[in-house]
């Protein structure tokens, strides 16, 4: 009989080099138990109870909000967000331009330099001055013909009739997109407004969605508030806030029937504008749908006194 060494582990039927307390599974279990205990202790500590894991932290900071100048609109939307794209839509005579010019006027009054990219060349400087705009701080970009003809109106409208409208809007929209890109890249503007109010919806919707995404990315993390004035929403999910503006019947001075009194006794005094917050990405998640989604305010005529 040959003599061979018999090890204890073999004798008891266990693995040769690993004893039961030092097996990997056991070590893992032990570590897990220990970790759970520590976590339980940490959780039980009163000061550290409210610690939020890093994975659940809300990384995106709330954007800075600036006043639009209209308290009712500010209370509805919280103001206009810097670093975000805000859409203001409405039909003709809805008061959308009044809202836009007033927001620009308040921004220029704050000392900010603003830009208005006027796709249809519809900006009326007198209206802006009446709204209190600091004209020296407003950059007005008139899209359209590069070298406009200096003909009297009676002759020029005949020329204009000959041009196909779609082609005209296309060139203006192209200019608008290029100019907006440049303005967003240059930084330093407090507010940039794109006026697409007179652009037909069909033409405005031909703006590629990629352009809006680019604008959104460009304006992000900048102190610029980007406003878009339009007839119907066109920026899709790129806009952080969508406000629809509509007007209740305009308030006209004079209560007598229109045909019984001289027309010069009538006067357009003010608009009753209703703003409806259609969408906002800036609301806090915990909040439910806001109780009030519309706000009404008045827009007075410059001559109303």
């Amino acid at each position: 009989m040959s003599a061979s060494p018999v090890f204890l582990s073999a004798a008891v039927g266990r693995p040769f080099i690993f004893s039961s307390p030092s097996s990997p599974r056991a070590i893992a279990e032990k570590t897990a138990n220990r970790t759970a205990k520590i976590l339980a202790q940490v959780g039980a500590m009163p000061k550290l109870g409210a610690v939020v894991p890093a994975s659940r932290l809300e990384v995106r900071l709330a954007p800075e909000m600036v006043s639009s100048g209209i308290p009712q609109l500010d209370s509805l939307t919280g103001g206009l967000a810097r670093g975000c794209l805000t859409e203001i839509c409405g039909t003709a005579s809805s008061g959308r331009t009044s809202v836009l010019l007033f927001a620009l006027a308040r921004a220029t009054e704050r000392g900010e330099v603003c830009a208005l990219v006027d796709a249809s060349d519809a900006f009326d400087p007198a209206s802006a001055a009446a709204a209190g705009m600091a004209m020296s701080r407003l950059l007005w970009v008139r899209c359209g013909e590069k070298h406009p003809s200096r003909k009297p109106p009676s002759a020029s409208w005949k020329n204009r009739r000959g041009n196909p409208p779609c082609q005209r809007w296309e060139s203006q929209l192209g200019q608008m997109l290029k100019v907006t890109d440049l303005l967003l890249q240059s930084n330093g503007f407090g507010m940039i407004a794109l006026d697409l109010g007179d652009i037909p919806v069909e033409s405005a919707r031909r703006i590629p969605l990629a352009s809006w995404f680019r604008f959104r990315r460009a304006v992000e993390h900048t102190p610029t508030a980007l406003l878009v004035l339009e007839q119907q929403p066109i920026a899709g999910s790129c806009s952080s806030m969508l406000v629809k503006v509509s007007s209740v019947s305009p308030q006209l001075s004079g209560n007598r029937p229109a045909h019984s009194n001289p027309p010069h006794s009538e006067l357009l005094d003010q608009f009753e504008i209703t703003a409806e917050l259609l969408r906002s990405r800036l609301e806090r998640k915990l909040e439910r749908k806001p109780v009030q989604s519309t706000a009404s305010f008045k827009s007075r005529a410059p001559w109303a006194g």
């Binding site: 008061g95 009326d124 209190g132 007075r300």
Partner: peptide, 18 residues
Amino acid sequence: QEKMSAVIALRLFRPPLG
């Protein structure tokens, strides 16, 4: 209050439409 209310704006047609 007036200062804080919007002013009716005019959108111009350039050139004016016949």
